[in-house]
Design a protein around this nucleic acid. Sequence first.
DNA 1: TATTGTTATACTCTATAACTATA
DNA 2: TATAGTTATAGAGTATAACAATA
Lengths: 163, 163
Amino acid sequence: MLPERPMSEDPKSDALAPLSRIIQLSTAITKGRLVERATEQAGLARDRPAMAVLVSLRTAGKPLRIGEIADRMQVVGPHVTRQVQILEKRGLVHRVADPHDGRASVIEPTEAGTECANQYVAYLLGWFTDALVDWPQQDRDDLARLLTRLADDVTARLAQLDE
Amino acid sequence: MLPERPMSEDPKSDALAPLSRIIQLSTAITKGRLVERATEQAGLARDRPAMAVLVSLRTAGKPLRIGEIADRMQVVGPHVTRQVQILEKRGLVHRVADPHDGRASVIEPTEAGTECANQYVAYLLGWFTDALVDWPQQDRDDLARLLTRLADDVTARLAQLDE
DNA sequence: TATTGTTATACTCTATAACTATA
DNA sequence: TATAGTTATAGAGTATAACAATA
């Protein structure tokens, strides 16, 4: 859903190009099914949301409770419950009861689960590395710097919108 | 669904930051409901996909057939049929029969539809302009340039994946 | 018989509501 | 009675299948 209209004398034109391109990127990645491809390649075809849970655990680097996973993924609890059940059936995570709180348990990737997440990340990273391979080093550095600032700015401003 | 792992000696580290940030951006915009806010503000609450059709027509700058809209949006025909029906009921588009082809008609925004799309774009662009307002001019230029190249590279590479 | 579009249905992802068990 | 999690259900967005009308 992009604007796209030439208005070079408009002060808003500085925002038009980045906004259009972010929309283009997002659309291309979605329609190109990049995440689905990485998920399939990691052996978890047709379970992309479950893969997201596995990646969350990998990112955390430690076992997490259902509620903690939901917070990190910014989704609701029941969704995580369902995905964890799928991962359990596939033998990619297992539960460890919390000895101090009988209501909760902690979700831990199995060896197969860790391997699966690693493959997923390796695929995505490899794909993206290839995309940048012909770029001058200076441009790669600038891209990383500017995109980091942009993402932080946008994240902060969107968080404010909710007050 | 982000990797996020420090590996500064890895040649892939140049791709990690941009990739992570794009994911962060995309997640923040989705969770912050930026598109929904713009749609509501334009008076089309609860009809975000219909708004996307209206924006497509605005971007084209000319009336389009159902099939043309579907192509541009990269969605299937039946989805567009449905959204156009919603827009028709709301008086935001109307159909003009194609005199040369009885099977097709062309979809044209009404005055209200044009105004609605303009408000949508103005909201998004205004929001994004505010986000960049404190940036040095050089950084804004670099961001536009690098993001354009990145979007084009990624779009081309993803199109190749389908062969 | 190929193309344009429509109707009906199904699928993916995630949310809300109601409930259970432990704290 | 507050909290962690589960089960059941609903909703948004988009796809597939079957069909109708015109080319």
